[in-house]
Each structure stands twice: as C-alpha cells, then as structure tokens.
Design a protein around this nucleic acid. Sequence first.
DNA 1: GTGAAAGCGCTAACAT
DNA 2: ATGTTAGCGCTTTCAC
Lengths: 338, 338
Amino acid sequence: MATLSDVALRAGVSVSAVSRVLSDAPEARVSPQTRERIRAAARELNYRPNFAGRALKFSRTDVIALVAPDLTNAFLTELVLGVEEEAARCGYMLLLGRSEDLKPGGEMVSRLVGEGRVDGMLVQVGDTSRLEDLQELVDADLPVVFINSVEAGHASGVVLDDERGAGMATQHLLELGHRDIGLLGGLPHTWTARRRRAGFLATMRAAGVPAARNWMTTLGYTAQQGRDALRRVMTRPAAPTALVVANVNAAIGALQEARRLGLDVPGDLSVVAVHDAWTAENTWPPLTAVKMPMHQLGQAAVRALYNRLHALPVEDHVVADPAPRLMLRESTRFLSAP
Amino acid sequence: MATLSDVALRAGVSVSAVSRVLSDAPEARVSPQTRERIRAAARELNYRPNFAGRALKFSRTDVIALVAPDLTNAFLTELVLGVEEEAARCGYMLLLGRSEDLKPGGEMVSRLVGEGRVDGMLVQVGDTSRLEDLQELVDADLPVVFINSVEAGHASGVVLDDERGAGMATQHLLELGHRDIGLLGGLPHTWTARRRRAGFLATMRAAGVPAARNWMTTLGYTAQQGRDALRRVMTRPAAPTALVVANVNAAIGALQEARRLGLDVPGDLSVVAVHDAWTAENTWPPLTAVKMPMHQLGQAAVRALYNRLHALPVEDHVVADPAPRLMLRESTRFLSAP
DNA sequence: GTGAAAGCGCTAACAT
DNA sequence: ATGTTAGCGCTTTCAC
C-alpha cells in the first residue's frame, strides 16, 4: 500500500504538504498547482490513509463494539439495522463482541477498550445475564451504552418504553372484551421483564380487572420457554381466554404449543406479543404484536455513545418515538360469548 | 492508559526490557528479579498493549471483516456461531460489514483492506447480488473468502454441498412414494440456487421420475417469495403432491400460503426444506428440513482466510463433513392413495 | 507556500 | 542481562 511519503516522492513535495492537502486541513495554504499535483499522485498510487497510523496519532479508532448474546435473533433485526445505519452516519465501524465473553468481570470490555481497539461499546445483554454481572461494568464508568438492559435513567443506557408496550398489548385484549388475561413473561431478574410486567399489571389495574397470579409466568423469551409457559398456564382447571406474551419468540412457541394442546387461536385463546419481527407474520395464525421502536432504539444507542465520547449531553434515555404500535393480525379476537 | 514507558519508568528499566518480558520473547535473557519487577509494575498500572501501536508495527490487525446482507437471518445463526468460534480460536476479531456497501465496485473492500483496518474478509452475498458485481472482487485477488457465494473450487471460496442437500431432500420425498414433486428454488443467477436445482434434477433423473418444469420456480429465498412460489405452483390445474423448497425461510412462507389456500400439509402436500433453522421447529406443522453444516461452513471460511493470510494451502473448499442430515419433522408424509 | 522534525506506542536489531 | 535507537504512517507545530 502506498504511504504518504510515496505520494510525496511522486509529487515532488514533502509529506507534510501531502498530509495537509489530503486531509483538507482548513487553513492549509497550498498553491493550487501543488495541490493538484498531490491529488494526482495520490490517485495514481491509489493512496489510502493507513488506519493504524491515524489511530496511533489520534488515540481514536472510530470503531465501536456491538455486543449481544445472539445477533441472529429475529427480534434484533431492526435493532441491528438501526445501529448499523446510525453508526455509518456517525462515521463508526462496528466490531462484533461475543457476549459470552462478557461474564468474567468485564475482561473483554477492558481488553477492547483498554487496548484501544474500540472507542466504546454497545451492550445488549440477553435475558440470561444476571444483573450482578453487569453491575461492575456499569460502575466502571467505561464508554459503554447498554441497550434495553439496565435500569432506565441510568447514565449509560437506552431503553424502550416497555411498560407502555406491554400496556398496549394488554389494553388491546381488554378492548376485545377479555378479562381473564394471563402474562407469559421474561425471567424475573431482567429489567425488560420487570417493566413489561409492570405495564401489564398497571393496565389491568386501571381497567379494574384482577390479574391472576396463576396465569402469570416468568419463564423467559425463547420459543421453548414460551411453549412451557403456555402449557403451564393453559392446563390449569381454570384457564385464561387471552394471553400477553412478553416476547415474540416466546409467543411463537406459545402458539405452537396451543395447537398441540388442541386449543384454537384465536377461537379459544387470544395471543398478543410484545415486540414484532418478520417471523410473526409467518406463524399460524399470523401473530398480533406490539411493534416496539427497535430501529430507533439502535440509533439512539449509537447516538448516546457518540455523545458520550464527545462529551456532549445525552439526549434521550428512553426511546418513545415512535410510540409502540399494535400490528393487528389474526391471533386475537373478541371474547366469544361463554 | 498506561504505556510501555510508564511501566518501564515504574520498574526502573528500559522500554525494550518491558517489551521483551511482556511479549514473552522466547530468547529474551532477562534476570528473574527484573522480570518479576516488570510483571508487577505492569499489573499495578493495568497495562494493556496498545492496539494501534502493534498494528502499525506489524502491519497486521488480527481483525477480519464479516460481510453479509442480513446477519439476523435465522438461517445464518449457525454460520455466524461457527465464524465467531473459529475466529476466536485463530485470534481474530470480527468487524461487521454492510453488504449493501459491497455493490459499487468493491469500494468498501478496498477501504477496509486498503486502509489496513482488517487483514481480510469473509463475504456471504445474499441471493440479491448479481454475479457480475462480485466478479471484479473475486478477480482483485484481495484476501477475501466467499461463503457459499461463488463457484465451487474457486480459490477464494468455501461452499456447502448444496447438490447433495437438495438431493437428500428430493430422495426423502421419493422414498415416501411421491412422484409429482416440485421445486421452489432460489433466484436463477445465484450459485446456491443453481446447485440445489442441479441436485434436485439429478436425483429425480436417477430415480427415473420426470421433473415438471411447471412445478419449478426460481423466485427466491424469502418467506414472501416462498408464498408467491407456492401459490404459483399449487394453483395450476395439475399440482404436485410434494415440494422441495430450497431455503428454510421460503419454506415457512410456503407453509403459510398452503394453509391459506386450504391445503393440508402434509395431508395434501408434503414440504421439505433445504437448510434448517430454529424457526423450522416452530412452524405448523413443524418443518421437515435437511440440515446443512452451516457451523462447519463458518469455521471453514475462517480457516480458509487464515491459511490464505499465512500463505498456507487451503484445505477444503467444499464443506462435506458432517454430511447434510434430514431433520424429520411433520411436514412430509407417505403419498396417500389417490 | 512549503519543509523539517517530533512524537503517538510498539518491536527488534544493535549496542553495551 | 539490559539499554539505545530507528522506524512503522500519520499529523502538527514550528521554521523558513
């Protein structure tokens, strides 16, 4: 690869002149003809500024890490797209982190950041991580932004309006006339699960409808956990007529298990999920879901990190725009007369 | 962050001594006590070797790029896992590339490689890319390994045994007594689609069963395209009793469209997909599929790149181990008597 | 308007 | 056994 001095040699000028021209230094007083000579030489040699050289000089790589337990999870599609888009806009490249390496005391984080491989990082912990594991990371005051993973309002996190999302799903069922409504929720130690549960409970309470503890599970967000949860709730003597499922993957599992049990959805049971994904369109029946602004969440996360790295005030911690939106498909229906 | 000279200062030695010790230079003759002093100083200062410094020195970053049109696609899950695993083993970190940036003449590639941001890259093109766009990239002789994207046997690509996979799917249907078998294939200009089609045709021919052109589509690998393809094939006057679908996402769409048309799967129609994914377990009925060794494909891709970068001979271009495996679920059945 | 030189953090060849 | 130094590619201050 051609270096600055290669270009300088070919243009018959000094490296500093080349540097000034090629990096468009604002107050570089360079004569038009040398400027053109330099430009030409650079073009002919196909010059590219060396990344390591710049990084060393600036102590900055313009690379940020994206750490998530499972990037291929369908419900992260929009999130990742949002992150990629905003990262590109902010001039960042994305390094992939394996979140399993997140466990032992933030070793990866300190490597990535400590070695100067990345300027900062975005972390989305799955529902498998324990809060305690994160705490020291949070406290370490590293350039890290958590995505829907930690307490809202914490300095270094962006979150969804999970309460509102779950509330909307619940409200939808209430408006369909359901009163016996269950909640298949996420693991109890995760923030998202707590907030969605809170949204569910608040909406039920506001409607004056009691929420039966027997119809609420905290099994998790995978399809298998959704299957298990549905079986647990629907094989009781008294079963609900509708379910809010706190995650789209779990809802897909729940739908399948319902069929296995001979339950007709939405005839016998209405199901609405929090989170949308392309997979929700392809279930049978197609799954009604509350679409959360994942794209914007991704963008907000990158922007938060950007602001953090540039000592700017962070704008919004909770992403409420656009608001969660009900994607009405075919897994919910008016409560039929008993 | 602490630098080498910080450590040297604290240990009361020179930077080179520190460098030697901390990078375990093999023939570094350093007295045990200074060695220990250096180690201690480094520990106390929480020293981490600076990435940019090393990269500049070695002209090597130990970072490789992973470029794919849609990393969140469920059928890539295993691939990505394999890549991550092997990359970690080879000491590589992964940079995310957006494959949409791949289009205009390999601009991204030359940036990534030309600026020395990555040592090489892994490219999985979706079925949307045209072969021509890739050609110049292939010809450019850059450190690029294509994943199931270009002609088998090409120096810089690893591929699945797509023919075999499609053949196994076809064979499965034949063994169930089906003779009227269709193929919902990928876009005709892609290699994977061609190879799977070839495998389908070869197996049909070997069984002495004619393949009806009317029952073969080349619409693509998305769920929507699967829906369209199924409708096209199954609304003809004479319809097949079984379908091979060349991709799991398309098969999921096909399954859904079949239901919409009032077709019972597998009663009226058997469906088998090439490629497996977790989503195949959650369709209704659960989708029978041929599981391709995606994990190993990912590993092989990284190894191929590693070998390429270290001037070693590349081992295997087509990943045949383990062989494709039929995941027998519930979307296929014996041909019922007419 | 242009060039020389220092220095970012690191390694390795070459002193001592 | 340890230290000095040059240089990887780049930017920037300071001279001229």
